[in-house]
Amino acid sequence: MAPVDTFDAVYAAHYAPLVRLAYVTVGSLPAAEDVVQDVFVEWYRRIDRVDAPAAYLRKAVVSRCSSWVRRRVLERRHAGTFDEALVAAPDPRIVAVRVALARLTPRQQSAVFLRYYLDLSVPEVAETLDCPLGTAKSLLHRGLARLQAHLEDR
């Protein structure tokens, strides 16, 4: 497959999930779109050198989101978490899940998303987060526990 075809196919399949992944972490849809688009642009520039585009893109999105969160941590502390318009979904269960997700740490959010939305294995989550397997298990365990605790309160 030519690089351009590869790009189009991967872009079509992974753009939306990656934006959602970024959004879960950064809590801002415009920021999530910027992050993901930057990652695709960077990938396109070196498309011949990337063997596993999906894993590469996931890892790049998580890495950039972490940087973004570090830069904006103070803003987030003062400005709340998720965009209110998005949190205010019509389904109360969805609202509850989004609020619960917003209470996780950025690393826990990414781990939960990768594990339960993208159905990655725990080793794949660890690789994407660039952390040891034990750390990934801990992030998932703590993230899941906090989600369960919050959802049970509702």
Binding site: R20, Y23, L29, L86, A89, D91, V97, L101, Y116, Y117
Partner: peptide
């Protein structure tokens, strides 16, 4: 989680 994330408009 899947339902909540799928509802994010992209």
């Amino acid at each position: 989680v899947r339902a909540a994330v799928d509802a994010i408009p992209v």
